[in-house]
Design a protein around this nucleic acid. Structure first.
Lengths: 345, 345
DNA sequence: TTGAGCGTAGAAAGCGCTTGCTATGAGGTT
DNA sequence: AACCTCATAGCAAGCGCTTTCTACGCTCAA
């Protein structure tokens, strides 16, 4: 029914071993023989049986990429960059199956996907985005990562703090520094009543950005401002902005956990009759593609998502040597645009 | 080194066959035995060898999802919906490895990924987004899909025209109808000079949306308006809008191939000193999440991306019966918002 | 001429799992 | 008491490939 190696071998009048060697190209085969084999492969429309091959070679060409939310361009951009370095058509040339798995931000699903990838004996795994700060989950995750690296699977974290003693390489985003510079910018403009819309609690990204924000306030001798937590999406930003306004109608600036949240906040402010930036300044984080096109354009912290993803991909493929200590920090760049200005009067 | 089924069997004092049956749960095993086996699995931290299992059972738990651009929420939303029906934590409960593959819109990569999935003996494949209308590629693709379905892999197209005689089920988007209604809306407002920013040529999505647009014009007795082609992204929209303005400075409306393009067009119009919608109306397509938050909010055609993706996922899992004839059409809904208005004077 | 050395190909032993078939008892029947 | 039925469990034969080891010519140097 389905064509096997043996069929190809028979057709090319060689042994299965030779066909395998032609296909893998890791053993000398005479040019004529090779050609005969390739012709047979073509004529029979032969497709290698991946499982059989992986079993025999105890290695696969599968690389997994975990993302928290595939519908969010923040992850899409990183995932695309990783794939561009790994998958078909990538610089590597290898025909690897670079696949992205959507955890939806759920710790269990993160672990399940990791197990599934371990089951497939994945070559490498790239985990993108922030982590959940739950002790139990962190332990389970660390244990899993360690088992993966022990089994020879390279694990690279992209946009997540290092996981010590797991063998995983980390490309960490400087969320704290970015958050701090952003708030410093606002303080520099003269804002003193600044509301903060944070991401979901228990996420490293959320915490670090908030810490940076508060560090800037503290450095200026100011207390923490009003803070509201919520998911990383526009409607959360919308609701949170209204809530902040309710708590402190006199606030002159809102810092959002990311650009999508900022976008929702802008909509809420407009609906509440506040002009941006005249009445209230708004700032985001990430600098997603749409952020330059909002009205007014969004002040934000640009994270080099594509570059970081690409680098993570190369490290996963061992085409770039890992950073010293297995950890590198990726910095953001403050992008000052029209959504922030000095507060009135 | 690595723990195998046999190790678990030894520890649980049963045969490997029994362990396998406990793990697969498709054969009666006495409760006590099952428990002993599960304990051993746990104690040894056993993880099934996927390739070996797939080889022996000649079936895998891999489901592939192909997308044209993973950084575009249009695809991210669909992919996420498919995964929600298939992957871990999904309604199916099965621990399937639902993976998304980014073709980047390249025909070769599309084929390569399909081959890679065929190689892994994927359970099912969902292909999202429009197709390339190149005869050679279409044939190759059809042949590949046919071979996949022949081998028992269910193939579902989501947002792509049917592929007759390939065994693939298609959930097609009514791009033509949506495009037509959108332009009818503009005509109804009184616009006569309407520019069109199309997507890349040779894509079904591009062609159908444009055809709908022109059908509306023709029905109103108007000739085709100015048209510019470009990629489906904001900078393409920016450039194209300027080009349209150059060609016809008096145009009163611009229809864009999708929302991202429309966003770029809006930016260009603003930079050119035109007010929206006072001077020029702008419309998009898809109704991505950000579209309601643009200023002014974008008139567009809402496509039920999540619902369509979820349905594609269920069909791929045979949890919903396929539509009659293997083809169903998904309609869009015109969303009239602030970016379109009657032309002045 | 003989033997070493090289380039190339084949034989065959698995890789770790699934599953059809067979074996074994316990419980129920007549 | 002998027999039949189930419910469970084990045996063993693969699944289709990779890879080690061996074999077979040849060429080339001694």
């Amino acid at each position: 029914m389905t064509v096997t190696l043996a069929d190809v071998a028979a057709r090319a009048q060689v042994s299965p071993a030779t066909v395998s060697r032609v296909l893998n190209g890791n053993y000398p085969v005479a040019a004529g023989t090779r050609e005969r084999v390739l012709r047979a492969v073509d004529e029979l429309d032969y497709v290698l049986n991946g499982p059989a091959s992986s079993l025999a070679a105890s290695a696969s060409d599968l690389v997994g990429i975990l993302v928290n939310d595939i519908a969010d361009p923040f992850f899409g951009i990183m995932a695309g960059a990783v794939q561009s370095e790994i998958g078909p058509g990538g610089r590597a040339g290898g025909e690897r199956l670079a696949v992205v798995c959507n955890t939806g931000g759920s710790p269990e699903r993160e672990l399940t996907y990791l197990t599934l990838l371990q089951r497939q004996r994945a070559d490498a795994v790239v985990i993108t985005g922030g982590a959940i700060e739950d002790a139990e989950h962190m332990n389970a995750l660390a244990a899993k990562m360690e088992r993966l690296t022990d089994a020879g699977t390279r694990v690279v974290l992209c946009g997540r703090p290092p996981a010590p003693d797991t063998g995983a390489v980390a490309l960490t985003f400087d969320n704290r520094g970015g958050g701090r510079r952003l708030t410093e910018h606002l303080l520099g403009l003269g804002h003193r009543a600044i509301g903060y819309i944070a991401g979901p609690e228990e996420r490293t990204t959320t915490r670090h950005r908030l810490e940076g924000h508060r560090a800037a306030l503290a450095a200026a001798g100011l207390p923490d401002g009003e803070t509201v937590h919520g998911p990383y999406d526009r409607s959360s930003g919308y609701d949170a902005a209204l809530e902040l306004l309710r708590r402190d109608p006199s606030l002159t600036a809102i810092v959002a956990a990311n650009d999508s949240v900022a976008l929702g906040a802008c909509a809420a402010l407009r609906d509440a009759g506040r002009r941006i930036p005249d009445d209230v300044s708004v700032a985001g984080f990430d600098d997603l593609p749409f952020s330059i096109d909002t009205v007014p354009a969004l002040t934000t912290v640009r994270l080099p998502l594509y570059e970081a993803g690409a680098r993570a991909g190369r490290i996963a493929m061992s085409r770039e040597k890992e950073p010293p200590g297995g950890v590198a920090t990726v910095h953001g760049e403050l992008m000052v645009r029209g959504s922030t200005a000095a507060p009135r009067g």
